[in-house]
Design a binder for these strands. Structure first.
Lengths: 300, 300
DNA sequence: AGATGATTTCAAAAAGACTGAATAAACGGA
DNA sequence: TCCGTTTATTCAGTCTTTTTGAAATCATCT
């Protein structure tokens, strides 16, 4: 009564019977004698007060209950198998998973080489990717919802003990739609040129940290969009203007859907330093592996 | 080597230690002696070649691996527990789940009393609801994707051994939007009156059975919509005309958003018989319970 | 320092699982 | 129809694993 009558041995036994077709064959593969199986099965039948096999005929016929125990039980078996392995990995210093938070500035595409390599080298660690915008990305790190952040350095909050390593730069360019009035202006643009048009801005996904809003900040009319893909789309449709990461709009620029504009007041260098960031002190093997393979995140 | 070193006993042991704070207390609750726990833990530590507890201090400290085995292991424990129960229910003649297919003509609302009652009376059987339209609903039954169908009798296919029981009628009414030209016509409508306007029709979800299309069939311009809610919406917006189930448009009629129209040629009785249908021969306890509680599906 | 409580060690006991020979029942080919 | 073969069960005895209890170790508290 106190104990669960479904045992691992029972599931193994059912599994072997199913695989090999008869008690006798199953027993052989389990390195047991047929009567040992009978023993295991009958114990469960007694405890659970159900029939596992219909013994009226020559060969025992599966009951629905037994089939059900087998099919569900197999899942349990693999879960236990995996649990053993993941516990070993954990003891060896690996983590059970690893979460990379990508700023929306970056394309998912760019993390694929890292994911692929991780899957080859350390297949026992599932690597997940999350996306965030501006401070929101870093927030994931501080809240332990991510283990590695890839984002522009300037969005990094001062708080928290975060270590970073530069991994490249991203050029932000002012781009407008093909049919936008500014597209026709044939000279470096001034602040006054820009003033009349709404600015497309990324919404900061941060909930705790004071949100940042990057780009042409002091303007009035804003179109807040949730991520970079939407921002590119919005600007392509002429809904507003704003800075876009050059590497994500190559196609649009070549195709003429987006027109690059230069600014007269070149006060701001529009090269952003991209960094990988992590919590100071993280030192498991997964993390080390990641730091050693950061170059796979290369920004071209 | 051949056997998984993670055992149910191990998980139970870890669970008890976690619950009661010390090996000694845990042992007492497990009706064992402390050294028995030591034995279980050390066996796993030896097999898996990991440490479950850090014994350097006075009291043993959990390792990360042990915590992981416990938290994942608890899931496994409840899964095994459930498996035992569901096997017993199955042997007693209950099913592991039950799927009701509702024709889109009906509101999900109307099956709630049945679901509620099932949850009270036979909580061990999860009841699922699927929606389908016209022959598609019946198809789910024949393909064993549903165990009970609630749909208009006329849409029932001849093929297949299906038993039915009437559970009510639904009045289908011709309704047009408030600002539809027909709304202003102050007399029973003729076929010719209707001819100029597109008809909103439900798309049959059937993939195998020859699809039916209900309603004003012989007309040309059709707007095919996926379900009844969409159809009501479409007609409310004046996108077309068609018959709607009276009980689903009470609000709209009272509010004047939809106007009821009568037909001059009253050849077709627009009362539909609603039936519950099931595969002949189904005779498990779940099914019997359902048949005994069909009145909860009352159509008002 | 001594008492307390937690945990481990180890030999012996108990419980549980497995074996093997005997039995029964059903198939299948001659 | 008969006989050899295969399938599964029963049961008593054996072997393995788990559990026990007494003694030992060690850290903490008084």
């Amino acid at each position: 009564m106190a104990h669960n009558p479904i045992t691992v041995e029972l599931i193994r036994t059912l599994d072997a019977i199913d695989r090999h077709g008869s008690f006798a064959a199953a027993a052989e593969h389990l390195h047991k004698v047929p009567s040992a199986l009978t023993y295991t099965l009958q114990k469960c039948e007694r405890d659970l007060e159900i029939k596992l096999f219909d013994r009226s005929g020559h060969r025992a016929e599966w009951t629905e209950a037994a089939r059900h125990i087998l099919s569900e039980g197999r899942r349990i078996l693999v879960a236990m198998e995996n649990l053993g392995h993941s516990a070993q990995r954990l003891a060896q210093g690996w983590t059970t998973q690893y979460v990379v938070a990508l700023d929306h500035l970056l394309d998912f595409e760019q993390i694929v080489p890292l994911l692929t390599r991780a899957h080859e080298d350390i297949p026992w660690v599932p690597v997940h990717v999350r996306q965030g915008t501006l401070s929101g990305t870093w927030e994931l790190l501080l809240e332990h919802e991510a283990d590695l952040v890839v984002a522009p350095l300037h969005s990094k909050p001062d708080a928290g003990n975060i270590e970073t390593r530069p991994i490249g730069t991203i050029r932000m360019v002012l781009a407008v739609a093909r049919d936008h009035p500014l597209a026709a202006v044939d000279r470096p643009l001034t602040e006054d040129d820009l003033l009349p048009y709404p600015v497309v801005t990324n919404q900061d996904t941060a909930r705790q940290i004071t949100p940042l809003t990057a780009g042409l900040r002091q303007r009035r009319q804003q179109l807040l969009v949730p991520d970079m893909s939407t921002k590119i789309l919005a600007q392509k449709r002429g809904l507003g203007i704003g800075f876009l990461p050059m590497h994500r709009i190559q196609q649009e620029v070549l195709g003429g859907d987006l027109i690059l504009k230069s600014l007269a007041s070149n006060d701001q260098e529009r090269e952003m330093t991209l960094v990988a960031g992590w919590r100071q002190g993280d030192s498991d093997k997964t993390h080390h592996w990641m730091l050693e393979h950061l170059e796979l995140l290369s920004i071209n």
